[in-house]
Amino acid sequence: MHLPTLSFFLPFRHRTLVWQFARREVLGRYRGSLLGIGWSFITPLLMLGVYTFVFVGVFKARWPGAEQGGGLEFALQIFTGLMVFNLFAEIASRAPRLIIEQPNLVKKVVFPLEILPWISVLSGLFHLVLSCLILLAATLVLRQHIPFTALALPFVLLPFLPFLLGLGWLFAALGVFVRDVAQMMGLAVNVAMFLSPVFYSAKALSAQMQFWMHLNPLTLIIESLRAILLHQQWPDWAGLGLYSLMAMLFCIASGLFFQATRKGFADVL
Rank of each mutant, 00 (worst) to 15 (best):
L167D: 04
S196L: 02
P4T: 03
E90P: 02
I221T: 15
D180P: 08
I115F: 09
L142M: 14
M246F: 14
V189S: 06
I146A: 07
F8V: 10
T139V: 15
A202F: 02
H127S: 13
P4Y: 04
M246L: 15
S196M: 03
M185F: 05
I100L: 05
P96D: 06
L157N: 09
D180Y: 10
L157F: 11
L164P: 03
H214K: 09
G241N: 08
S201W: 03
L164Y: 03
S33T: 15
L140K: 05
V129N: 00
L48I: 06
Y51R: 11
R97I: 01
M1L: 09
E101I: 07
D267S: 12
F155A: 15
L242Q: 10
L10S: 13
L256W: 12
I37M: 14
M184Y: 12
V84N: 00
Q233F: 01
Q259D: 11
L105I: 08
I100D: 03
V56Y: 07
L17G: 11
P162A: 11
S7K: 15
R29F: 06
R29I: 08
A66R: 07
L245G: 15
Q20M: 14
F79T: 00
T52Y: 07
G69R: 09
G69I: 08
F194R: 03
L98H: 00
F59W: 13
T52N: 08
W39R: 08
L215S: 06
W234F: 14
F257A: 13
I146H: 06
F148R: 15
L17P: 11
N216V: 13
I42E: 09
V176W: 04
I78G: 02
M248F: 15
P64H: 12
W169F: 08
E114C: 03
G175V: 09
V191T: 06
I252C: 05
L269A: 10
A137M: 13
L82R: 04
M83E: 02
I42Q: 07
V56T: 13
A150L: 11
V176H: 06
P154K: 12
A152Y: 13
R29L: 10
S123D: 07
T52G: 07
L82V: 07
L205C: 09
S244I: 08
M209D: 13
C251R: 11
L220W: 04
G81L: 02
L245M: 14
F160G: 00
Y200M: 03
L167G: 07
V198S: 04
I37P: 05
G71M: 04
W63L: 12
V26G: 02
A227K: 13
T5E: 14
L45M: 11
A95N: 06
V191M: 02
P235Y: 07
S93C: 01
L161K: 01
D267F: 09
E223A: 02
